[in-house]
Simulated assay, not measured.
Amino acid sequence: MVAALLAVELIGGVGLVAEARRSPQAAPLMVGEHRSVVLDNHGGRPGEQLLDRVAANLPPAVDAVEAFWGTDWAHRIEVTATGSDRQFATLAGGDGADVAQWSDVAAVAVADRVDPDRRTAAGQRIVFAPGADAMSNAALRIVLTHELFHFAARTDTAIDAPRWLTEGVADFVARPAPDPARTRTGPVELPSDADLTDPGPRRAQAYDRAWDFARFVADRFGTGRLRQLYLTACGPGHVDLAVAVPLVLGVDLPDLLAGWQRWQG
């Protein structure tokens, strides 16, 4: 999930080789040689315009996800544009979802069923909120890439994985370099899943801290180690972060956090 704009938010040389369609039954787009993309519009003309922009940004988004995660993930990608806040909340959080809970969320990656043991997921899709069409192109690409990482990592992510770490790594994949115009807010400490629950500044700051932590790990240990930390701390049968950090990075968690503090300058 990307809280709007917390991304500011459960193949090389690719190119689009088919014209966009507007329903899951129509011929899909192709990204590269292997990935088909279905664009499903429920948002009228704004939704159609948004999906046109999504289509244009899919190749670099796929490139970014594959560069970090690899190519072994679902070959069919469905993207939905919604037409109302209620519709978005229902698709994002299920029947009876609180619309206010999703008020600052631009998009979410969801699935109907996931079987991590068999590495399968049914009903996977990326769903955009009706206001997402107002995003800049740069912001849209960040959000799309963030959600596409969740999509790619879905079958390798435990249901009870620490959400803050899954979001931080997704944000790193979407924006590996800092935005010079953004200033740090909040303490330099690990967020909790509870920090990501409610809309507002606390959630925005938690996303930023999670992203900053992931960026630090990648900068100090390399992106391959960050990926391995994700699998160890967030994958099926995952261990606590305090155990995963020395296993993967070779340092204790307190030392890692002290290094993160120094890295901040």
Rank of each mutant, 00 (worst) to 15 (best):
A74E: 08
A26I: 02
W211G: 01
A138R: 15
L91V: 05
A158M: 08
L140Q: 02
D252R: 15
L257R: 11
P176T: 07
R35A: 01
G265L: 12
G47Y: 02
A27I: 12
I159E: 11
V243I: 14
V62E: 01
E33K: 15
V114T: 08
Q264H: 14
V17A: 13
D156R: 15
P116D: 06
R202Y: 05
D193V: 03
G224D: 13
A258F: 05
Q205E: 14
A138G: 13
L253P: 00
V54C: 09
E189C: 13
V79T: 03
A233K: 02
A122Y: 06
D95E: 13
G131R: 12
D95I: 10
N41T: 05
L196V: 04
I77S: 01
F128C: 04
R175E: 04
W164E: 00
L140M: 08
I159F: 11
L148V: 07
R141G: 01
L29F: 07
P187W: 06
N137V: 12
F221M: 04
M135L: 15
N57R: 15
P162S: 06
L229D: 00
V173L: 08
W260N: 03
L231P: 00
D85E: 14
A106Y: 01
A258T: 09
T120E: 10
T166V: 15
R215P: 01
P199I: 07
I11K: 10
N41E: 05
V143E: 00
Y207K: 06
P130N: 10
I11Q: 11
